[in-house]
Design a protein around this nucleic acid. Sequence first.
RNA 1: GCCCAAAUGGUGGAAUUGGUAUACACGCACGACUCAAAAUCGUGUGGCGCAAGCCAUGAGAGUUCGAGUCUCUCUUUGGGCACCA
Length: 1077
Amino acid sequence: MKYEPKNIEKKWQKVWEESGIYKNYTRDKKFYTLDMFPYPSGAGLHVGHPKGYIATDVISRFKLLNGYSVLHPMGWDAFGLPAENYAIKNKVHPRIAVEENIATFKKQLEAFGFTYDWDREINTTDPEYYKWTQWIFLKLFEKGLAYESNEPVNWCPSCKTVLSNEDLENGLCERCGSEVEQKPMRQWVLKMTAYADRLLYDLDSPELDWEDSITDQQRNWIGRSEGVTIKFPISNSQEFIEVFTTRVDTIFGCTYCVVAPEHPVIENLKSQILNLKEVEDYVLSANKKTNLERAELQKEKTGIRLEGVEVINPFTQKAVPLFVADYVLGNYGTGAVMAVPAHDERDFEFAKKYDLAIKPAIAVDDALNDQTRKIFEVAKEIAIFAKENKLVAAFDGGIGLDIAMGMITRNHGDIDLQVEKEKLEVWEKYFEDKGFVIKKNPDERFELYVAELESLHIDFGCYIDDVEKLIKNTIENIEFTTFNPIEILKYKKSEAERTKSKRLKDIHDYALFGEGSFVEDGYLINSEKYSGLSSQEAREKMADWLEKEGIGKRKVNYKMRDWVYSRQRYWGEPIPIIHCEKCGAVGVPESDLPVVLPEVENYEPTGTGESPLANIAEWVNTTCPKCGGAGKRETNTMPQWGGSSWYYLRYIDPKNNGALVGKELEKEWMPVDLYVGGAEHATRHLLYARFWHKFLFDIGAVSTIEPFKKLVHVGLIMAEDGRKMSKRWNNVINPDDVIDEFGADAMRLYEMFMGPFTQSVAWSTSGVSGVRRFLEKVYGLRKKVQIQSADNICGAGIFIEVGNGSYLFHERDQFAKIAPGSVAFWGGGREKNETPSQCAIRELNEELGIDVQENDLETIADMTSKNYVDGEFDRFFNLHTYLDINNITVKEGKGYVVMSLGEAVNNPKIDTRTKTLLEIISKGKKNKSLLHKTIKKVTSDIENFRFNTAISQMMILVNAMEKEEKILVADYELLVTILAPFAPHMAEEIWEKLGHEQSIFLQSWPQHDLELMKESEIEIVVQVNGKVRERLMVAADVTEDEIKETALESEKVKVFTEGKEIRKIIFVPEKLINIVI
RNA sequence: GCCCAAAUGGUGGAAUUGGUAUACACGCACGACUCAAAAUCGUGUGGCGCAAGCCAUGAGAGUUCGAGUCUCUCUUUGGGCACCA
């Protein structure tokens, strides 16, 4: 009986594959479940990779059992840098390396027994596949969404190719970690920004049901901001610079302007710039800096003034100096900004360094400033008093918070002061003398609240010393009416950092700016006719004016850039473009697709900005499809993310020669119902794929606006030492070894059991042995359902009519519920030459006096005949569905008596055999309840990706079943069915051993029975003042008054209630009763 | 700096309309079987206390009859973004 997974698993994998059982695509309901297809690396799988695949397989099998047609495909994302780098390193052709790696991966995956339909396997490097990747590019090109650009791009000197923004990690090459340079190069770029708004807004569409963490990341990445562009004319010139700002309301505080080093104005104004040499040197040195350097040096801002050049603020008509500085980005907005040092931290730093004017243009409410000052004055007095009298005290979160509250509510500001309890009297006297009210009264202004504390509050807050400094730095140095943010910033940087108290800094922010500090709105000051307007009103009015005067306009900007789509590498899809001197860039005609990646002797990158393809003259030189003249092929290739941006469509119709996907099939299967993969793709693959899908929707190739309905991200599996699994740490666990030792089912089960699915958890090999033990227990339970050979059982049993009109058949300890209108017969008691039916009729008539006709017995005849086919199990038990016995109708003479189960057991008129039966039934009821609770929980847990708790629940059930002497086959079958998605091999094996001829995956998923879930007795917790004092077992239908009475009489409760007045009793049905005294 | 998520025994983790904190699993300890070991089975396992009981869900407050769960403040960890005007 010992569970030996090895042969069992191989056997069923073969059976499933040959029968194609999960490839039934003709059912009414469809479910498309998709894994992020792997890049087949040389290292093979480690145990972390399959976690997502196991989850989709559990869901697939669950959906199969629920009557769905399930599409669950797998393929290979095999183009790209890593494959090529691996090939170069190991001196094999990438195609050969990829083939070998795929073979390894496939073998590894097959060992898990996944339901993949390998007939639909796709490979992005297959010309029949990338033909359509190229086709999509051509369509983008036709619609003007693929264009050539010479803008500076990210260049990785180690990988010798350009990279998209999405390919960077902290400014480094995501692949090799090299610093990326900014180089202007000719590139193919896809106009992803044209879809920015739709990519953003459709995140809220009902067609999309993703985790917030992923949608938040995408929103962040897209980075939409609304503002205006404003033209600043350059004095003594026809030129102007255009700036972008979201805070036009601060424009009266603009004291200078800045352009990025790349900005063309520098070139255009050469003649006007007096310090041209210096400026050019600066631009040169700035261009040399990598992104990383620019970012790392952000604390120290550099720049240089363009001497002789001034720009005119269109609102004030006053000239301000112009700077070039690399803290302004060339590729965002217009590459130029207006600097408002009073309200922008970066401008402030720069202005400080170069001693530029700082002019406030926004202030918060004067009345609030008055209020703030009063609060600070009170705080100051208290601080001084405490210090002089050597009283230890701390201003709690209160001072900052409540001041902030005062600002926000504009009604009251309190000061919370926490002091030592024993010194309270001193404080009370002081406050009395001062005329403060020492109690909380939120309705009156500026009152003082002294908290009674058990001990000194020391964890946080600011001590008297800090408060004193705070006051000095605010009250004494600041003009409150037009307070100066600079002083605050100074304080914020120095003091807050020194005391390491973020709290203190927040106090300033809150007290003086409200939340958000520099960027917070207020009302305009020093802004001529706009003074007095709120920031919001001013932004509208100023934008209106700008547009009316033609000086500027409203504009939306995105952080997201267009997608740099070409790579200077060999191992990618050739871009299907032919360059012709006469016609320019011309798309390869559709009929000539695919443009096959040619064989090449040396596929190492050249580093020149050309791909190795440029060296193959016979491939490069071709004719222009438009004019027939000489043409040269585009030699750049596509990035790895091209093929993966639409692969989910190809699975639907993988062999279609005429289209990337057939329209009918596409409508039938799309969208992907469930997509599972790593969160690292949030801003790359998932963004690109959504972009392409929307484009394909626009050209009518697909019918949905979003590709992936539900997205779940899989948590990483870390190594046992808590680090990432990596060859470098030598802590990689190979799934092959685990499967070899514990079996695929144990592996599957363990990965689902380790913790919440989306969370990363450390691997534990002893944890695998735990689930293996569980599987063995389930397998071993078969012993308990095995009955004696049918020959040993004789005679018909007793029939009892149960509550709903059906009969319960009882023979020895075996019993079954028979549907109304049918009767059961146990095959063993036949006399010679008697058919089972005849025997049944005879025994029923003779022993029980029940009148039964031959035609009542159809079902039974079939069952009994099978008894003898399989000696180990009795098909008879297949009829056991459930036992629903609350009331029993017992035949008594000619009449019937209805009684409860409990009554029946104690009724002297009931014969011994029946009593035994009833006792078994009452005992079994508890497990019925547990069984059906388990069915319910496993069902909802699978639907909600809570696999760990589903498995826990099954473990609880199995532990309970193990304690039973006998288990009904029907119950066992239910258990095995709900376990089947997790441990399909073992479930199938048990199912076969139980005598079934069809696969368990052709069963239906069981429904839980609410009636059976009910317990007859429940435990009620008795609390006194919220603390548990007693637990009472009571009948499930007990009333509130009854339980109150019982609870109050309990000895344990009396100890606590004796002599006390009971103020209230709270009763929560079926859970608890709380006595409040 | 900004955005998101999290913090519960020795470990992974349970506990969702606020109602029995620590389910399930691992580990550990003891016992049974064994010449012995492994495997298996049984018992125990948050802390303090002889006990009654008290204390415990990162810290501190608040709301409530009752808080792991809700509110506020703070700390720490993980992930993402980062001079985006």
